[in-house]
Design a binder for these strands. Structure first.
Lengths: 349, 349
DNA sequence: ATGAAAGCGCTAACAT
DNA sequence: ATGTTAGCGCTTTCAT
């Protein structure tokens, strides 16, 4: 076990009182320059670190940020949160916080975990991911006055302005992807999305509609909605292409669907395409999230700036935690950050 | 903020002393049945949770397990650790622990983080991943007497018996994969691996050699070593196939290399294969780790029982933490767990 | 600018 | 079987 160096040890060696050491650490400006340097030297020499548990008892601050880690649902999209998690751990450490993990199967059990965690480990704040309509988790934290930030907009009606959030502009991404295809000469550009109602999915679809509108293309009949699995994407793509042979490109709401679309686009059943007007041009496909799978199969995809998103989450949370403002006060005019995804171009488009 | 309920509140409402409440929680058998029930009722009623910080000051136990989260190096193989992490969080919670995350760029900075963490948050133990020859991290923790378990064998010479570890039997996996191919009629089965010297890579290669030997096949000239990237795998596969046209199947040390091999195996340059003795049979490929990419591209792969591995890590660590034995004592005869991977069969083999 | 005293919530030792 | 005392390491008054 590492030999415990307490504040008293530092004080003794530096020839000052315990209190002065504490001041040097917490209120440096109140200590004389010379004393400060001497104390800091001893701190370094002895390898002293403040004990969080003891500090927490006095200040009530644990320097812990809690976040849920999901089971890898689809497996393809799961990696997004994992990369976000890495960024969060990194940024948090720089800001003097550590990340505490928890799991939960659904919103209800997650709220139960909030209570548990708050009562026991007392994390200073939470980072919520996967926000959705009428998210009970946000309401609960808001209600208790627990500081938190969400990675993902609150998609509900009125909730928009009640807590700080960081998000990536999905519609800007799909619009950029669509424009990229338009620039490449495509006009019949389809969209593979999720069933209406999911904030994220609707938003990404909107970007495609907007870009098509900008080029004077009517999106009617050019989109399909399905659940997020490779097989579903393949089926939906096939259906869309069959019903409208003019389709030469597909923008997809996720890499999962895009990988499915790629299968469909390259399948033998589409051999007739070779007698098409553009025989040398296979159906272009663009996915969303730039997952490892996209990289492996050469799929053009939209990349979220996850590291930046994580850094912003920490900044926003730290602002609440360290600012004079309380969580409730900051809820009055919470900060929002909307980042732009970037298109990573590969063989598929 | 959740209203703080202390042990004193519970004691007052239940009409007992603080100490009795503490006893009910920590040494139930020393309290009379009736008192115990009454106290527990009040605990539930008031929603009391022990404050970890306060307990930690007394007991020195934080109920925290620290683990490093890696940047997704390759992106394909990265997902393995992420799935392990989820399992660890889950198992830890069940055992009364929480997972604390940290990042580090290399062994040296990881050791520095150990010091930092130990001095500040005082995690009860560590779970190390990615163990390798002469791992300085294990030595450091061993030296300081800090409890830890590794997910991965200590590959070094003498170190084998100095700390508890959990691992997956890579050579059993590649042997099973090779046997699967032999059973399917393949005889010229190649191996794509990493340069010699990495414990994991050498072990996986050994399984392939062993299985071939069992079938009386000479492995000479049938393997290639390369770094772990898709493009490298493709190049190595092409080289191997070109130099020995008899090769009809490939076992790979990772999904990254396997995906590359798949590209090579399906590339136009191999068209001559159609005039082969088995024209209907493309080159079979088997990967390792059963990553999302494997699933997406239909790659047969070896799946590690990550959830089980994580659970075993927690069990082993908890045994040290909660047993009477000290870390040092348990180091005298540490427990080892070796799990078997399973072959997930898909189109590629 | 520095020091002394008090107490955060809990549990290990020692009474009763 | 239950209660009392003390103190973990720190920071926040308050005094010097």
């Amino acid at each position: 076990m590492a030999d415990k160096v307490t504040i008293a040890d530092v004080a003794r060696v530096a020839g000052v009182s315990r209190q002065t050491v504490s001041n040097v650490l917490n209120t440096p400006d109140v200590v004389r320059e010379e004393t400060r340097r001497r104390v800091l030297d001893v701190v370094g020499e002895l390898g002293y670190r403040v004990n969080r548990a003891a500090r927490q008892m006095r200040t009530g601050r644990s320097q812990l940020i809690a976040i849920r880690i999901d089971p890898d649902r689809d497996g393809i999209n799961g990696s997004v949160l994992d990369r976000f998690l890495h960024g969060l751990t990194d940024s948090a450490a720089r800001a003097g916080y550590r990340v505490l993990l928890y799991t939960a199967d659904d919103d209800r059990s997650e709220v139960a975990t909030f209570e548990d965690l708050l009562g026991a480990y007392e994390p200073d704040g939470f980072v919520l991911t996967g926000t959705h309509h009428r998210d009970p988790r946000a309401s609960w934290l808001l209600d208790k006055g627990v500081p938190f930030v969400t990675f993902g907009r609150p998609w509900g009606e009125e909730a928009t302005t009640r807590h700080p959030w960081v998000d990536v502009d999905g519609s800007a991404g799909t619009a950029a992807a669509t424009r990229h295809l338009l620039d490449a000469g495509h006009t019949h550009i389809g969209f593979l999305g999720w069933p209406a109602g999911s904030g994220v999915g609707d938003d990404r679809r909107a970007g495609w509609v907007r870009a098509l509108a900008g080029a004077g293309v009517d999106p009617t009949g050019l989109s399909r909605a399905t659940s997020d699995a490779v097989a579903d994407g393949e089926a939906a793509a096939r259906d869309l292409i069959d019903s409208d042979p003019g389709v030469t490109a597909l923008v997809c709401v996720s890499d999962s669907l895009a990988v499915g679309a790629l299968h469909a686009a390259r399948s033998p059943g589409l051999a007739w395409r070779e007698e098409d007007t553009r025989p040398d041009l296979p159906i272009a496909v663009i996915g969303f999230d730039d997952t490892p799978v996209a990289k492996a199969v050469g799929l053009t995809s939209l990349s979220q700036p996850l590291k930046e998103a994580a850094a912003n989450c920490v900044t926003l949370l730290a602002r609440i935690l360290e600012g004079t403002e309380t969580a409730r006060a900051s809820a009055a005019s919470p900060a929002h950050v909307l980042l732009e995804p970037s298109l990573v171009i590969r063989q598929s488009a």
